[in-house]
Design a binder for these strands. Structure first.
Length: 266
DNA sequence: ATGGTCGAATGTCGA
């Protein structure tokens, strides 16, 4: 089974790219982030005709996540337990950040869009840390109940866990994504039992999944590794290969993120 | 030249 995760930065704007990507790489399951649409706004005809089931979760134009599968899609769950949807700050913006489903041979895949954090002292930063702790708790709970669970936590974590995951640490002085609390929150998820299954085969430095649209970051090879596939022990043993589809970042109409693809044989 | 780009509820914000 071949799974992938991709921050698509609007599914409506990039439906043709998604269809071509699924076909080109023979993808069984695709987790999307930043769909930027309510499900009612999506025309899923072409995906359905290509043999895929889709579960989209989005409440407004911000964020939104989805799972696309041609190997079954059941037992959908929306959002993490014990973490309130943002915000409590009176802006009235409610954002969808997580959805999961059982696909293939009993694999639970979570499509995750970790809150951005914005600025170090912004309320969204505290919310981001709380959200990551809720993810850790959910992962730990799952593994405690079922140590052999086939579970993957995939998506845009908005954290660069190591210095080599950004092109220049000096550029991130005083910025989010690289701070000690964010990295600790990320590593706590890993320490709960969910290892990065891509990094061992694709180490850095210079291995990125995101390049800002601005300032010619992609041609200058100035990117960040912030999109991950984290697998439970049963998943870790099943990995037979992986790659980051850097080609997808090229050309007109690209997302600012590249897809991350992992092959599993249970 | 200290910007440069996208997508969306576009007299403008979030990433």
């Amino acid at each position: 089974m071949r799974i992938a995760t991709w921050n698509i930065n609007s599914l409506r704007a990039r439906m043709e790219r998604v269809l071509a990507f699924l076909d080109r790489h023979d993808i069984d399951v695709l987790a999307l982030q930043e769909t930027k649409a309510k499900p009612s706004q999506l025309d899923l005809t072409a995906l359905t005709e290509a043999g895929y089931e889709v579960y989209a979760h989005g409440l407004n134009q911000w964020n939104g996540v989805a799972v696309i599968s041609r190997v079954g899609l059941s037992d959908v769950r929306e959002e993490l337990p014990d973490v309130p949807l943002w915000p409590q700050d009176g802006t009235g913006v409610v954002e969808a950040r997580a959805v999961s489903a059982i696909v293939g041979d009993g694999l639970r895949i979570w499509s995750l869009y970790v809150p951005n954090g914005r600025e170090i002292d912004h309320p969204h930063m505290a919310y981001k840390l709380r959200w990551l702790d809720a993810l850790r708790a959910e992962g730990a709970r799952t593994l405690a109940e079922e140590p052999d669970t086939r579970t993957v936590l995939v998506g845009d974590f908005n954290v660069a866990p190591y210095d080599e995951d950004v092109w220049d640490m000096a550029a991130f002085d005083g910025k989010t994504h690289v701070t000690a609390p964010e990295r600790a929150a990320f590593h706590a998820v890993v320490d709960a039992g969910f290892a990065d299954v891509v990094r061992p085969d694709h180490p850095g430095p210079g291995t990125y999944t995101y390049w800002d649209y601005q300032q010619l970051r992609f041609p200058k090879r100035e990117g960040m590794r912030i999109d991950f596939v984290l697998g439970s022990p049963a998943v870790q043993k099943a990995v037979t290969g992986s790659f980051i589809d850097r080609e997808e970042r090229k050309g007109k109409g690209a997302s600012d993120h590249a897809p991350v693809v992992v092959d599993l044989e249970f």
